[in-house]
C-alpha cells in the first residue's frame, strides 16, 4: 500500500494518496467530502456550466481505493453529495456504479452540512459512527472526548516554500488524537491548515500529511 502509516488513538491507520483513510485491522475505509453532483448543483442554481465529469472522476477514485483495499466497511464522512437534491438527482449510471461499490460491504453515510437529509440510497445514515476507539463525524467537535475522532469538512491543504518553490497540496491533519481528512471529491478547494479554526483543534505535535505518491508528512505548523 503506497500510503503513510500513523497511529490514531492506538489504531494503526494509513493515509492513502487519494485522501482516504485506511484502517487495515478493521478493514475500514473512510473518505470525506465527496461533493458528488457539484457541477449539476451549480448549473441548477444558474451558475457556470462546469464540465459535468466531477462525479465520474470522484467515483473512479473511490473504485480504485476500494479495489486496492477490499474494505468490509466504508464510511463516507459527510458532504458526500453537494446537496440533498444532488443526491436524489444522481444520474442512473452513477447510481449503478455506487451500488456496485456498496455490494457486499457495510456502508455508512455520515450526515454533512451539505447533505443533512437521507440520500435515498442504501447503506446506513448516521450523524456519527463509533468503531472501536474511533468516532467518525463530519465536523470536528472541539469538546469531543479524545483521543479518537475522525472528521472532514474543512478540506485542509498545506502550502510550503522549498528552495524558492511553492508547493500546495491537499493534506490529512493529525496529532495522534484527531484526524481531519482532506476533501476527496474532484471539484473541491481547500482551507490552508494555518487557519485559526484548524490551529485551535490540533495539538502541538500536529502533522500535515501531504497527499502525493507517496504521501509525505510535515509539521502542521512549519
Amino acid at each position: 500500500m503506497n500510503g503513510y502509516d500513523f497511529t490514531l488513538a492506538g489504531a494503526r491507520v494509513t493515509a492513502l494518496p487519494s485522501g482516504g483513510l485506511w484502517w487495515a485491522d478493521a478493514r475500514l475505509l473512510a473518505v470525506s467530502d465527496l461533493h458528488l453532483g457539484k457541477s449539476e448543483r451549480m448549473a441548477r442554481r444558474g451558475g457556470a456550466l462546469l464540465p459535468p465529469y466531477d462525479t465520474a472522476e470522484t467515483l473512479s477514485r473511490l473504485e480504485d481505493d476500494i479495489a486496492a483495499t477490499a474494505p468490509a466497511t466504508v464510511i463516507c464522512l459527510g458532504d458526500s453529495f453537494d446537496d440533498d437534491t444532488a443526491a436524489r438527482a444522481l444520474p442512473d449510471w452513477a447510481a449503478t456504479r455506487l451500488t456496485a461499490l456498496m455490494a457486499g460491504r457495510r456502508w455508512i453515510w455520515i450526515t454533512g452540512n451539505h447533505d443533512p437529509g437521507p440520500t435515498g440510497l442504501a447503506g446506513t445514515h448516521l450523524a456519527e459512527a463509533r468503531e472501536g476507539p474511533l468516532t467518525f463525524r463530519h465536523i470536528a467537535d472541539p469538546d469531543a472526548p479524545l483521543p479518537g475522532e475522525v472528521s472532514g469538512h474543512y478540506h485542509p491543504k498545506t502550502c510550503l516554500t522549498l528552495r524558492g518553490r511553492r508547493i500546495t497540496r491537499r493534506c490529512l491533519l493529525t496529532d495522534g488524537q484527531r484526524a481531519i481528512l482532506p476533501a476527496y471529491g474532484a471539484y473541491t478547494g481547500g482551507l490552508a491548515c494555518t487557519a485559526p479554526v484548524l490551529d485551535a483543534l490540533m495539538g502541538p505535535r500536529a502533522v500535515a500529511i501531504l497527499l502525493g505518491t507517496p504521501p509525505v508528512p510535515v509539521p502542521m505548523r512549519v
Binding site: 457541477s39 449539476e40 448549473a43 441548477r44 444558474g46 456550466l49 462546469l50 464540465p51 459535468p52 465529469y53 444520474p91
Partner: peptide, 11 residues
C-alpha cells in the same frame, strides 16, 4: 456548456 456528455439539458 458544449460537453460531449449532455448533462445540462434542464439547466
Amino acid at each position: 456548456g458544449g460537453y460531449a456528455l449532455r448533462a445540462y439539458d434542464r439547466w
